[in-house]
Write a protein that binds this DNA or RNA. Structure first.
Length: 265
DNA sequence: GCGACAG
DNA sequence: ATCTTGTCGC
């Protein structure tokens, strides 16, 4: 594209994603961290809610993969730099996630060799293989997995494989251009389905294994994003009804950690 | 030109 | 994501 060509913001961001997607695909052929080690590590979950008064409320949770227990969490809030545009979600939400992650790492004492990031949204199951989970994985330099509630891109094929395992795999989503599998369609409970795709630094197979472990009976979302969703919504609601302020939300920490753990089956 | 379209 | 009442099911 020549230097004199006019590009809209949208077109520039799409070009950025093409480069990200290309790099991401080279990182998901093998696991950066051995699966055996990941299974005994911690997951960092990300989700966001939106407050009418304060903008985006992003939450990063730290969960023990073996026990599904919420260990800690950190929040970040601020006006999103971009409106929501299908395919460009990362440019809207990733900045706040990044800030929340830095805050979380700063407050926890132990630093496991291998973290795994779980993001509410897609990884490589994206038009340019650059979903928000891929953006996060590259930015944080840790393996990441995208868990979405709705399909964005790709052809869904029902296969009904792995009926044996507790959380069954209903099928896969394939890339119409390469015919490669991009995501697995899991069925956490009778009616709800979720789309699991690698973000970066992890294979689809390992991503599926991890998510199956993080899904508790009858819960649609894996615990890391489930807790993040719960906490971010409580905080944005608290801010909007005036019962707390940005300065006092930190005081909710102990209460919400306990709330999340006890509110679980 | 006509749909599809993460959160 | 958010706006919102009643309602089906355990």
């Amino acid at each position: 594209m020549g230097v004199s060509e006019v590009m809209t913001i949208r077109q520039k961001l799409i070009e950025v994603q093409k480069k990200i997607g290309h790099k991401v695909l080279s990182t998901i052929k093998k696991d950066l961290c051995p699966l055996k080690e990941l299974l005994n590590s911690y997951a960092v979950g990300f989700d966001a809610s939106y407050s009418k008064r304060y903008g985006g409320i992003a939450v990063a949770t730290l969960v023990n993969i073996n026990t599904n227990e919420l260990i800690s969490y950190a929040i970040a809030m601020g006006e999103p730099p971009l409106e929501y545009i299908p395919g460009l979600l990362a440019f809207r939400e990733a900045p706040l996630y990044y800030t929340a992650y830095l805050s979380l790492v700063k407050k926890i004492k132990t630093t496991p060799r291998c973290f795994i990031a779980i993001i509410d949204g897609h990884g490589i199951a994206h038009p340019r293989n650059a979903g928000i989970a891929s953006h996060i994985g590259l930015a944080l330099n840790i393996p990441s997995i995208g868990v979405a509630k709705k399909r964005l891109y790709g052809i869904e094929k029902v296969r009904n494989v792995n009926k044996k395992s507790k959380i069954s795999i209903e099928g896969y989503v394939y890339d119409p251009k390469t015919d490669e599998p991009l995501a697995a369609v899991l069925v956490p409970n009778k009616k709800k389905r979720i789309y699991v795709s690698p973000g970066a630094y992890i294979t689809l197979e390992s991503a599926i294994r991890i998510i199956q472990l993080l899904l508790e009976p009858d819960y649609r979302l894996p615990t890391p994003t489930y807790y993040a969703d719960l906490i971010s919504r409580r905080i944005s609601r608290c801010l909007d009804n005036g019962r707390c302020t940005p300065e006092t939300v930190g005081g909710l920490q102990r209460t919400l950690e306990h709330y999340a753990n006890t509110n679980r089956a």
